[in-house]
Design a protein around this nucleic acid. Structure first.
Length: 587
RNA sequence: CGGGGCGUAGCUUAGCCUGGUAGAGCGCCUGGUUUGGGACCAGGAGGUCGCAGGUUCGAAUCCUGCCGCCCCGACCA
């Protein structure tokens, strides 16, 4: 039992000016966190208790799924990352920890970095320590602070520079076993979120800079989420928009036959899809080939889309580490024209050998014969045929899927909604084990790279996602197992000895039944206490007041319910215990 | 890093355009009256007006630079 007056719960009547979304406001108003700087937060006692709840459940689920807990340093030698496969991409978000003292010894390159994640630490460890198939599989995890210099921290704990994450790394002898490890973790994640009392759905996701073969994100549906989820209720298909595909292009679509010889025509001043759609050219956007130039790891490449399609995010399907749009200065020497007149027609590209490839979205096959830039300023080509004329290295999914397009599984229209990414699992393959030489010897004395998976849960982000998903106009509504305390005893007259005696009695009964109890013993008016009770949102509230004592009752009220129940003092202990036991066991 | 907005007491803010004693509400302290959904009265403490320079007799207010924060975009758990 904890007395409010001997604890520290600084609640606020007004929302801080820098909080935009409900969960962020409530985090601060309910006294869970305070901001130190952009993306940096102190967890106040109440917030810290929730963190411990989430952490404990996470640990239990990881252990149950065969995870082995360890602890890795947060300060990493930069050299370790330099040897890894993604130094170039990762250093953008890594804090440097160069040297101590006045910084005069600091070099141009960091000596140390703060760990944003730990593949670069765990893989060399496993390489050194595990060499036999007899010691596999293994799945190591830790629950620890991560550091990422997010370009734009946002929404409180939602995207912070310093945050708490559970990160796990699995090592298997072969692909089949790695898939088993992957799905064991997926099940553990589902159990974790279910126990916390929030809805998190697994969606197919892009592997991004992490690399690897496939991946799922766990999304908490919320309007304020950073991600778009594309889903189909009928088939259960769900994917991050970056990864989503649709059945827009029928599997049996025949290649279009050429419509005639390519003709060049003058389009002075026309540098946009829209301008080409307008008179006098009148070429609909979906009859145009759009040619985009990007630079992947220093080498330019082309992406060809329909004129009315958009490139989706980065090009996770391609195996570049760092991708950025090409500048006009880079484009002209390679293609022969400025942006606006570009195309991928064979023979028109000035320096095709400079290109790392020409990647085309499947949907351009729907165009069949269309119009594209001539790689000659002020000119376009018509009757360009996909198969005959375009110099395509390979096809892929590069376009952004739009809601309403047919589901790849059911063919029904896809829907879209926003979500908060609270967890991510990747089947990595051998990207890191190859790089660091993490190999084992099998029973035939053969050496093989270990097949890895990696897994993350944003613990601190989950805290906020719970609030975002579970609150009302008055405050937070904690699910039982995430709550900092489960029971709040509101003593309206703490100066009455008989009131405090009853608090002790009921408090013990509640604790015996498995609840943690907070007692509001402040000398405040009832209104203040009730407002704060709703704000901090503990699941069960017991109200003890002078009036009730005279009547011989206490009040029991669930945060989720509107009305309080009056229960006779004689039955109070037993009834409270019964209610709590129900809640502990999951209603 | 591009675009937009904002920095005044612990919190929410007025004042800035049009330069002239820095104001309110909440919170805090003291006393009193109250006490079942953010009470009232009286008194009180608390402010380098983000920082630095400039213009001016005089700057929270005008100008310049810097810093910080928030929002939108590209990235992430």
């Amino acid at each position: 039992m904890k007395l409010w007056t001997q604890f520290f719960i600084p609640t606020l009547k007004e929302s801080p000016a820098d909080a935009e979304i409900a969960s962020h406001k409530l985090l601060v108003r309910a006294g869970l966190v305070r901001k130190l700087g952009g993306g940096l937060y102190t967890y106040l006692p109440l917030g810290q208790r929730v963190m411990q709840k989430i952490t404990r459940i996470c640990r239990e689920e990881m252990d149950r799924a065969g995870g082995i807990e360890l602890w890795m340093p947060h300060v990493h030698p930069a050299e370790l990352w330099e040897q890894g496969p993604r130094w170039a991409a990762a250093r953008e978000i890594m804090f440097r920890a160069d040297s101590a003292g006045d910084g005069k010894r600091a070099g141009k390159d960091p000596e140390f970095v703060l760990g944003p994640t730990h593949e670069e630490v765990i893989t060399p460890l496993v390489k050194a320590e595990i060499t036999s198939y007899r010691d596999l599989p293994k799945n190591f995890y830790q629950i620890a602070t991560k550091f990422r210099n997010e370009i734009r921290p946002r929404y409180g704990l939602m995207r912070a520079r310093e945050f708490v994450m559970m990160d796990a790394y699995s090592f298997d002898t072969n692909d089949d076993n790695a898939v088993k490890s992957y799905f064991a973790m997926k099940a553990a994640y589902e159990s974790f979120f279910r126990r916390l009392g929030i809805t998190a759905i697994a969606v197919e996701a892009d592997t991004g800079v992490m690399g690897g073969s496939f991946s799922h994100e766990f999304m908490v549906p919320a309007e304020v989420g950073d991600d778009d989820i594309i889903y189909c209720e009928e088939s259960g298909y769900a994917a991050n928009r970056e990864k989503a595909t649709s059945a827009l292009v029928p599997a049996d679509l025949a290649d279009a036959a050429p419509a005639g010889a390519i003709e060049e025509f003058a389009t002075p001043g026309v540098v946009t899809i829209a301008a080409l759609e307008a008179a006098p050219y009148a070429v609909p956007a979906d009859r145009q080939f759009k040619t985009l130039v990007y630079v992947g790891d220093g080498k330019p490449f082309l992406v060809v889309l329909r004129g009315n399609d958009e490139l989706e995010g980065q090009t996770g399907a391609l195996s570049f580490t760092v991708v950025r749009p090409a500048t006009a200065e880079e484009i002209e020497p390679v293609l022969g024209a400025k942006p606006g007149s570009l195309g991928a027609v064979r023979g028109t590209i000035r320096n095709p050998d400079a290109l790392a490839g020409v990647f085309a979205d499947h949907a351009i096959r729907l165009v069949g014969n269309g119009v594209t830039g001539a790689n000659k300023d002020g000119f376009h080509l018509r009757n360009v045929n996909v198969t005959r004329d375009l110099a395509i290295t390979r096809f892929g999914d590069f376009r952004r899927v739009r809601p309403g397009e047919p589901c790849p599984k059911s063919g029904r229209p896809l829907q879209s909604r926003r979500g908060i990414e609270v967890g991510h699992i990747f089947k990595l393959g051998t990207k890191y084990s190859d790089k660091y030489g993490a190999v084992y010897t099998d029973d035939q004395k053969q050496s093989h790279p270990m097949v890895m998976g990696c897994y993350g849960i944003g613990i601190s982000r989950t805290l906020q996602a719970i609030i975002e998903q579970s609150h009302d106009a008055d405050g937070i509504i904690w699910p039982w197992h995430a709550a900092p305390f489960q029971v709040l005893i509101c003593v309206l007259d703490p100066q009455l000895p008989e009131a405090m005696e009853l608090v002790t009695k009921l408090g013990h009964a509640a604790e015996q039944a498995g609840a943690e109890v907070l007692v509001d013993d402040r000398a405040e008016r009832p209104g203040v206490k009730f407002k704060d009770a709703d704000l901090i949102g503990l699941p069960l509230r017991l109200t003890i007041g002078g009036k009730g004592l005279k009547e011989g009752i206490v009040e029991l009220k669930w945060r989720t319910e509107k009305e309080a129940r009056k229960i006779p003092l004689a039955e109070a202990e037993a009834l409270i215990a019964a209610e709590i036991k129900k809640a502990v066991s999951g209603q």
